[in-house]
């Protein structure tokens, strides 16, 4: 009668939390303590300054994600947890990539950046810094394209997501 194990999949949770110190520790502690895997976690304040929104990308089977959701809901400072599916939501991630770009290949780099509708936000004689926003896949693709030129440094924000249309993640559990 053990609980069934499904398929390991990536899930995105949109979590409204009280904007108080210590909440992030409670959430990240819960993940490590119970052995859940976080792929990324972003947090920022919402339209209501007393409430922050976390977007957590985690993987596991359905049972694990259900447990994650229930355990998150038990934390006192968590206001609401919803799983957002790709169909019902829009999501974005931002990355900054510092790429080697000397005179001889700079125009090639710029061309690729244009194709991806990314931006160059800093230039030096040796390198450029590219800003790209989009899905994780798009960022991966640009990263691949830039690799041959030499990626010096890179940072990604992790995913943020909102439910599409007029539906809201209401402020109650």
């Amino acid at each position: 009668m053990a609980n069934g194990n499904g398929i390991d999949q990536t899930h995105t949770l949109s979590v409204l939390v009280a904007n108080k110190p210590g909440v992030l520790t409670h959430v990240s502690g819960l993940f490590s303590r119970r052995g859940y895997n976080i792929d990324s976690l972003t947090v920022g304040v919402t339209e209501n300054p007393e409430i922050s929104r976390m977007t957590i990308v985690a993987h596991g089977d359905e049972h694990v994600i259900e447990q994650v959701t229930k355990q998150l809901n038990k934390l006192i400072d968590i206001i609401k947890v919803v799983e957002v599916t790709p169909k019902e939501s829009v999501d974005r991630e931002l990355a900054l990539i510092k790429v080697t770009a000397k005179a001889q290949n700079r125009s090639e780099v710029i061309q690729i950046v244009d194709i991806f509708r990314a931006k160059i936000i800093d230039v030096s004689s040796e390198s450029v810094v590219i800003e790209i926003t989009g899905s994780g896949d798009k960022i991966n693709a640009l990263e691949e394209m830039m690799r041959p030129f030499g990626i010096k440094e890179m940072v990604r924000t992790g995913k943020v997501a909102l439910v599409r249309g007029s539906r809201l993640t209401q402020h109650e559990k």
């Binding site: 009668m1 053990a2 609980n3 229930k70």
Partner: peptide
């Protein structure tokens, strides 16, 4: 193994945690 299970608990996280 042969039983239907009714589980009453105040903590939703306990329901279905270990068994179906």
């Amino acid at each position: 193994p042969n039983a239907k299970v009714i589980h009453i608990d105040i903590d939703p996280a306990e329901l279905g945690k270990n068994i179906k």
